[in-house]
């Protein structure tokens, strides 16, 4: 079985400075869901655009959307009840992105996540 994870972390493809995964666990308390202080996890992998950054002009202002594909050997999660965590975030290139979907190619040594831009502006 080919370990695609080797390619994901190949210096020719991988992000030189690495990538930070932000994991947020929490619990249900009086007043609703309460998130813990997020934990930063140093990760590595390859980031490629999934969808162009797009300008959406609404009367209230200009909003920018966009998405990335993140290929990594580290486990990355959407919101997971068993983990008591909401979807992971990824900090990259001065922006924060949220995990929208994960394709678990873990038998081939990697995970492929689609990340959506959170900032909006």
């Amino acid at each position: 079985m080919i370990q695609v994870g080797d390619i994901v972390n190949d210096p020719d493809f991988a992000q030189p400075g690495g990538v930070t995964i932000i994991r947020t666990r929490g619990s249900f308390v009086a007043g609703g869901w309460r998130a813990n202080a997020p934990i930063s996890i140093q990760s590595s992998g390859t980031i490629v655009p999934a969808e162009a950054e797009a300008l959406e002009q609404v009367p209230e202002g200009d909003r920018v959307s966009g998405s990335l594909q993140f290929l990594t050997t580290d486990p990355i999660y959407e919101t997971l009840e068993s983990l008591g965590a909401i979807s992971d975030k990824v900090a990259w290139n001065g922006q924060t992105y949220r995990v929208q979907s994960v394709t678990p190619w873990k038998d081939f040594g990697f995970y492929s996540a689609i990340l959506v831009r959170m900032g909006g502006a």
């Binding site: 619990s27 009840e81 909401i86």
Partner: peptide
């Protein structure tokens, strides 16, 4: 500080948290 029965807040949840919340079985 508040002390309470966690089962109450697990069974009765509030909608629309900003970044979402884990689902249920």
């Amino acid at each position: 500080v508040t002390f309470s029965n966690a089962a109450a807040w697990y069974a009765v949840r509030i909608e629309w948290p900003q970044e979402g919340q884990p689902a249920w079985g």
